[in-house]
Amino acid sequence: MKFAVIVFPGSNCDVDMYHAIKDELGEEVEYIQHTETDLSQFDAILLPGGFSYGDYLRSGAIARFANVMSAVKEAAEAGTPILGVCNGFQVLLESGLLPGAMKRNRDLKFMCRQVELQVENNQTMFTSSYEQGQVITIPIAHGEGNYECDDETLATLEANNQIVFRYHDANPNGSKANIAGIVNEQGNVLGMMPHPERAVDDLLGSADGLHLFQSILKNWRESHVVTS
């Protein structure tokens, strides 16, 4: 399986994402610059965290216009797995690939610590290696992770089982309905504020994030099984 890690000016979690795929998952991965226009050779696309374009205007607001995002949208329509983490989630929201928006954290402070998440839907290509309702430990590092949407959008997310992760017990940023991660209706685009790529080895404090990448790989392999 071949992964692409998209690199925008200001990305700073691209190396973490690359390490998670190459060294922990053991799969092929390449850095892809924001100027690229063709992602057809990749089986999964990863949008890492950071401060794309300095977070000017709003987080992800300028990155949505990068050349590579047209290719990301084409891949999304084709069913390619796409994961946006932290700033990557913000870019997916600004690009319209996921519904809703991000606001400043409730306490208007940058937060960087471990949090507990509950797996709300383990029937996605990103979560099939988890148990339904499982509580996992994943770090956060953001100043604008307060997810917001209108009540109609929230009702749709609930009805379609698109809420994949919720903050468990404590909501660190004020995110609506404790939402930490959502998928699109097709189920192949996941955006989440916590950083699974920083939780791929027990030496880092948790290996719970590795199961997310293992789920992507498992589902890709199952979909590419050649039957006689």
Rank of each mutant, 00 (worst) to 15 (best):
T80S: 00
D151I: 12
D43Y: 08
S40Y: 04
A101S: 12
L98Y: 07
G143C: 05
K103F: 01
F126N: 07
R113F: 07
T153E: 10
H142M: 02
F51I: 01
A141H: 09
D169K: 13
Y147S: 13
E152M: 15
L83S: 11
C86W: 15
S129V: 09
I136T: 02
L98H: 14
G174S: 08
L47K: 04
G60D: 00
T137W: 06
S129H: 14
L92K: 06
Q123T: 09
C86I: 09
L154D: 06
A159L: 13
T156Q: 09
F165M: 08
G133T: 02
Q132W: 06
L108N: 09
Q123W: 10
S59I: 09
Q41V: 09
Q123C: 06
S95G: 06
E152V: 11
A78R: 13
I163W: 05
L117R: 08
G88W: 00
E116L: 08
S52G: 11
E116P: 00
V115Y: 01
D150G: 11
I82L: 04
G49P: 01
N160V: 00
N67H: 11
F65I: 06
H142C: 02
A66G: 02
T127N: 12
C149F: 06
A76L: 15
D150W: 14
T156E: 15
M125S: 13
K109Q: 06
V115E: 02
L46N: 06
E148S: 13
K109P: 00
I62V: 14
G84L: 06
H142V: 07
I140R: 06
K103Y: 03
E116N: 10
C86H: 14
S129P: 07
S128H: 13
L46D: 05
M111S: 03
F51E: 00
Q134I: 07
R113V: 02
A44W: 15
T156L: 12
H168M: 04
T156S: 11
V135N: 12
Q41T: 12
Y167M: 08
S40K: 05
S59D: 05
R106L: 01
Y130R: 03
E74N: 14
I136W: 00
G84F: 04
N161E: 10
E152I: 15
L108E: 13
A61Y: 03
N121G: 05
G145H: 03
A170L: 04
G143L: 05
L83W: 13
S59R: 07
V91Q: 01
A44F: 12
R106C: 00
A177C: 04
I82A: 03
A76E: 14
N173R: 15
E116R: 09
G100R: 08
S95H: 04
L108S: 08
G60N: 03
P99A: 04
V119N: 01
M125A: 14
